[in-house]
């Protein structure tokens, strides 16, 4: 029975793409998302101990109960976030995920897709990243890297003094860390709204989806 299968079929089966996004991306996405939420809630707790702007975060939105608890959560989640980040960045670079899926599209494609998104008509095919996604994901990756780097620079202004210096010194680095957090929260709002508008993407980020047949050639 097996002999009846042609070599052609075997090879076509071999190149058949798996579920997308890949399991590595899905797992690191959710570990990263959870640890990022913990970082934000505990970061707001730490911020409240000595606010740099004339407001405080409402206690119900903070994590840890007091400064010591906030710091404990912040540093615990930091290692988880960094581990997920290293795995994701390594995978993204080696697998071609960044080059293939996240490389930002030209301004015309961005304009077209933003217009479609604003009319709630953004096309979305499994395995294909549209211009809005490419822009947002590349942007938030850069912002997340800057958040981690500025955070490390205010945590270790002596041992990582060069990094603190790059961010303009302790006080400025602290404000940059806060500004980057704000951008991440802004991204989260847009990201969650878009994901809810196209619920199959949310499903796909959990279970993965098979790309439609037509797009299979372009995937490889």
């Amino acid at each position: 029975m097996f002999q009846s299968e042609s070599p052609d079929m075997l090879s076509s089966r071999r190149v058949r793409p798996g579920r997308t996004p890949s399991p590595v991306i899905r797992i690191t996405h959710w570990i990263g998302a959870a640890s990022m939420l913990v970082m934000i809630g505990s970061g707001w707790q730490i911020y409240n101990a000595s606010p740099i702007l004339p407001f405080e975060f409402p206690p119900w939105a903070t994590l840890g109960g007091w400064l010591g608890g906030g710091i404990a959560w912040h540093f615990a989640a930091m290692w988880v976030l960094m581990a997920a980040g290293v795995v994701y960045l390594g995978y993204g670079a080696l697998s071609g995920h960044f080059r293939r899926d996240l490389r930002p599209a030209g301004p015309r494609a961005v304009g077209r897709d933003v217009a479609q998104a604003l009319r709630f008509r953004l096309s979305h095919t499994a395995g294909h990243y549209n211009a809005v996604q490419r822009l947002l994901y590349t942007g938030v990756l850069i912002v997340a890297l800057l958040t981690v780097a500025s955070g490390l620079s205010i945590w270790k202004p002596v041992q990582l003094g060069w990094l603190t210096w790059l961010f303009g010194g302790y006080d400025i680095a602290r404000r940059i860390h806060f500004a980057m957090m704000t951008l991440i929260v802004a991204f989260l709002v847009i990201h969650i709204v878009l994901a809810l508008l196209v619920p199959q993407t949310l499903f796909g980020m959990i279970f993965g989806r098979r790309p439609p047949a037509a797009s299979q050639e372009t995937v490889r």
Partner: peptide, 11 residues
């Protein structure tokens, strides 16, 4: 835990 917040609990 004296001041463990709602936010903390929900998180």
């Amino acid at each position: 835990k004296g001041s463990l917040s709602l936010g903390g609990l929900s998180m």
